[in-house]
Amino acid sequence: MTESPDLDPVIHAQARLRVVSALSVLNEHDKITFPVLQDSLRMTAGNLSVHLRKLEDAGYVEVTKTHQGRTPATLIRLTRRGRLAFEEYTAALRALLEPGAST
C-alpha cells in the first residue's frame, strides 16, 4: 500500500494483520490457545511468537502463560485497544477503496 499514511504501522505488516484478524473473531475476554492460533494461521511457532511480542508491546494483544491440568499453556486474546486499532484499520481500508464514502 503506497498512499496510506494513516494506516496503523503495527498491523500494517501482513503477518500481524493476519494475527489480529483471526483474534478479532473471539469475543471480548475470550482467549485462544497458542497451537490452535498457530494452526489456523499456518505460521511457524517462532514466527508467530515474534509477531505476538510486537503486538503485545503495542498493547494490542494479551499473552497469558497458564496451566491446563499439568501441561503449560499459552493463551492469547485481543485487547480492547487492539480491537479498536483493528476496527480503525479496516475502516481506513474501506475508505481507501471508496474515497468520499465515509466523509
Binding site: Q14, L17, R18, S21, A22, L23, S24, V25, I32, L37, S40, L41, T90
Partner: peptide
C-alpha cells in the same frame, strides 16, 4: 486477507 483469516479461525 482479513475475511479469509477470520473465516479460517471460525
Amino acid at each position: 486477507l482479513i475475511e479469509r483469516e477470520r473465516a479460517n479461525l471460525v
